[in-house]
Amino acid sequence: MRARRRSRAFHAQLVFTVLVAAFLVVPVLMSITAGLTVNFFQGVKSGLTLRWIGEVWRLYRDTITLSLMIAVACLAVDLVVGVPAAYVLAKARSRWTRLVEEALVLPIAVPGLATALALILAYGTWREFRTSWLFILVGHVLFTLPFMVRAVLAVLSSIDLRTLEEGAASLGASFWQRFTGVVLPNCRGGILAGALMVVTLSVGEFNMTWMLHTPLTKTLPVGLADSYASMRLEIGSAYTVVFFFMIIPLLIGIQLAARPRRMAGVGEESA
């Protein structure tokens, strides 16, 4: 019914926005194509193949499994130490907790390269630790913890925690019963959003990991850098396709989880 004619300004902005979106999406589509074609230089007409994906699996399987292992371990640590910490920060509002909250964000504010260098200088001589995957895990935990804490804190600050807890306490619930029976179920949404973010960031972390890794502890992004530098374009592309395949479901999950609320703290992870 409303045959409202869009103005010229509308169309100009639409074209602009589409161009920006194309700038972001076209190279992704190109690398997917390159990873699946026989010869990228000759184009798609040279035929489609899964050969490069197979090659990536053969060459870099270990990096994929290591990245998944570190991401899961990182999530576990963040859940066990980060969620309780967020609860304490939400409950005990004081100068001290605010200071802790500020401090925890420092590993995001400081470039990953600096944090990695600091870790190497402090613990690099401890051989067993330096050469184990736990060394990388430590870096990932530092970097992802603030995202978990903030996601949970955002939810806890939006509910009336005190009334809920006093209600439970007046019914005789112990601290532990209140924490597991009242607090945790109420911050499920925040935990989910934080968890998706943590796994996504851990799987993609490069800045720190490049310094922390050893030849035997290569993660997926480390392998990617390696393949971009030393492999033919098709293999680098196929490897990137594998990475997209792992990360895009997580990114969609983040967008869905963030829909009811604003993404808490998204956008600060270093590139």
Partner: peptide, 12 residues
Amino acid sequence: MLTFPLAFPGVV
């Protein structure tokens, strides 16, 4: 489309 490269690592 405009937000999904959010968590791409620098190497990618």
